[in-house]
């Protein structure tokens, strides 16, 4: 299943996953595996099921069929807050900070139930130096880029083994996007699944790309081996769908 080619152990295995919004199937029989240390980019048009897939892996969206295995354990029925303790952290779409709490409070509240590890408030402020002077400001009073940095820092406070990033560049100024991606480059060795609308950025940061169309995987391959055209065709459903 995994073609990461690194020989690293599989950290996350998703098998035949189905998830719905009401009666509408959003994820239909998705299977994928992510190796330890791998960076996977999920691409696809709006409504392709990327966010739902990510939220299902994090435990924030109910699964109707299929299985999710994380580090060898079946976590399919585990509630979201328990998965955080195992090392799954989601940076949700729209950042979803606690608006009336300060940056430091947002970080502290996430540090209580994660795994033990190197990430502390100070480590996050070192990784995102722009946050240091703002650390006692309410999250609602931050700019979009500052909020995104806080949201990523908040996820890191749980010391995740798998970091799920949903649309980290959405609604940000290009310069803020650069800053966020620069900080992501610091997270060397982290296992990441990234949902990104911007193909160029997704291909640049990822080892492997999975393209979703209407809830199914239509293209999968090493980022270096895929051309922009191949991904674009899959993105818009211009290639014949795998049976």
């Amino acid at each position: 299943m995994t073609d990461a080619g690194t020989g690293a152990a599989t950290l996350l295995a998703v098998e035949g996953l189905e998830a719905r919004h009401g009666l509408l199937p959003a994820v239909r029989g998705v299977s994928l595996a992510v190796a330890e240390g791998e960076r996977l980019a999920l691409v696809g048009a709006n409504g392709a099921g990327k966010t739902t897939l990510l939220r299902a892996i994090a435990g924030a969206h109910p699964v109707t069929a299929g299985a999710i295995r994380f580090a060898g354990a079946d976590v399919t029925r585990l509630p979201a807050h328990r998965r955080v303790g195992l090392g799954i952290a989601l940076v949700p779409e729209g950042r979803r900070l606690f608006p009336d709490m300060t940056v430091v409070e947002n970080l502290l509240v996430a540090g209580r139930h994660g795994r033990p590890g190197p990430w502390t408030v100070d480590a996050v402020l070192d990784a995102f130096p722009l946050l240091r002077p703002l650390r006692h400001r309410r999250a609602a009073a931050l700019s979009g880029g500052e909020q995104q940095a806080t949201a990523i820092g908040r996820a890191l406070m749980t010391n995740p083994r798998l970091l799920l990033l949903d649309e980290v560049s959405l609604g940000l100024a290009p310069r803020a996007v650069d800053a966020v991606y620069e900080s992501l480059a610091h997270l060397a060795g982290a296992t990441v699944i990234l949902v990104e609308q911007d193909l160029g950025r997704g291909l640049a940061i990822a080892d492997r790309v999975v393209c979703l169309l209407e809830g199914r995987i239509v293209l999968e391959g090493a980022a270096a081996a895929l051309s922009r055209e191949q991904v674009t065709e899959a993105y818009f459903g211009l290639v014949p769908r795998a049976p």
């Binding site: 807050h81 955080v84 303790g85 509240v109 139930h113 994660g114 996820a155």
Partner: peptide, 24 residues
């Protein structure tokens, strides 16, 4: 306090609170 911050976080966004490990 940590428990108090958890309570405020859950009050402001219960969904996001679960994503940082809080049992709402």
């Amino acid at each position: 306090t940590g428990l108090g911050r958890e309570m405020r976080a859950t009050a402001q966004d219960p969904d996001a609170a679960q994503l940082v490990g809080i049992d709402a």
